[in-house]
Design a protein around this nucleic acid. Sequence first.
DNA 1: GCCGTTTTCGGCCCGACTGTTTTCAGTCG
Length: 589
Amino acid sequence: MLRRGDARRYNSARMPRTNERLEALLSEWADLLEISGADSFRVRAYQKAARAAGGHSRDVGDLGEKELRQIPSIGAHMAARIREFVETGTMHDLEELRELVPAGLRELTRIPGLGPKKAVLVNRELGVASIPDLLDAIEHQRLRAVKGLGAKTEENLLRGIRNLREHGGRMTLDVALRVAEDVIEELRGRAAVEEVAYAGSLRRMQDTIGDIDLLVASTTAPEVTEAFVGLPGVQSVVARGDTKSSVLTAKGLQVDLRVVAPEVWGAALQYFTGSKAHNVKTRAIAVKKGLKLSEYGLFEVESGRRIASRTEEEVYAALGLPWILPTMREDAGEVEAALRGDLPDLVSLGDLRGDLHGHTDSTDGVATLEEMLGAAAARGYAYYAVTDHAEKLHMSGMKRETVLEQRDRIRSLQGRFPTMAILHGCELNIDRDGGLDYPDEFLAGFDFLVASIHSRFNLPRDEMTRRLLRAIENPFVNVIGHPTTRMIGRRPEVDVDLEAVLSAAARTGTALEVNCHPDRLDLRDEHVRWAVERGAAIAISTDAHAPTHLENMRFGVATAQRGWLTKARTLNARSLRDVREFVARKRGK
DNA sequence: GCCGTTTTCGGCCCGACTGTTTTCAGTCG
């Protein structure tokens, strides 16, 4: 689940820049209020407002106070503060609050195990105002002198600081999934374990994962816990109770395990999948119905009788809701849509009929054309686009004669995989001005074209926007690959007017990619949602450089679902004929 | 601070574990 400060560490999204700035500022405001000891509901109001502003699909800087107040979780006060920020570039009350809270306390609360209360305590008693200060205090055993703290606290905080430094608290989806599946595999064979699954942000398939939440159904919890903390990959045990325990793996990743009775499996899975905001909303629905929802089930308040708990479907149904895909559970409107009976028909892995972006050893792939095609055909695809790099990619792009040779090879391979057509494509490089590698007459020889930015990531917003718009306008470009070029944890998104890009894509019949590589996931969830709202088509593509990369499709599908992408709007959920028509229409044929 | 077929005040989700404490506050999810 999302923790304080994690919100968008890697997402320096540059769409409506005001939204991000406001999210960061309101989130800071919430933290400062919490440190100041403000009422917890007030703190939450700021957190919710931060998320609402950050996730809004329009630039909140363009909205008047009345429009702002239409946004859920933004009231009169927040609307006024937002307008103040837009007009003056600052928020006076926040500035004042910053003066009141010792600098550095907010940083301290990022340490696992150190919340606002202890941060204030060590600051007041020991003058600690930064992580280095705290380390020094721990080293000299000064914490244990403070009433309420002890030697154990020193030890735990030291471990928390190390973990924070090493990982920044997050890992990519593939890393998390591998660890989770390994542990699940270990536990599944045990007699005491009836069911085991991962929950939390991993089940929701957030693009980065803080720690891994596992859930086991068992009638003998202590036995399961015993087995869990004794697994070979466990380096240290962070916490250990009868039903709840946490360990660190050798690589310092935290895995939390919760053991519940088999008859409450569904309620527990629902609860531990979250998100926190989704749970708050579902519980509020329960309360309105005179019910109480916890990880132990849905209960009637008056009689204490449990009315649902066995499966998630049962729990949602008893709340008057259809089952909701885990990837949608972010309190991003899914509960309201479910109440209206209006949940969209989201794309799923099984809907996909092909993959429209992949490489071979003709450029920087590691497998041959035949190997890649064989792996694609084995997945049951009806079509597969081979899109090796075009010539302007430094050192590895294809010269035109290589392109033509590859085309001949593909022609001779058509029919080799009876149920799969091979599209000959290319991943073009969008140069600084929005130009492409080859002239139009050469582009016309391809079946399908992806165009991507591979250089000059730091152009000013206007120039970057013009650059992408020009590529989109080209009648031969069918997909913009990894549109924001972010590399999770390593490279920020390019600064671009994404609204303009999405609108142009919708208008010209150009799809935008959800690149499935777990280091990219680009477009990301929120951007997908904006694309859907603006009517642009999305291609969910692996950008595979090896046969195993084809399996990344599930990460892209999850990202697309998080952005509420429907099957109808997914280019590679369409038939081969429809994909060809998509290409032909843009070419004006 | 937000919100409203309990509507302008009074709610706002619920429970486990730890550490330091003798009955519970803090943190986390």
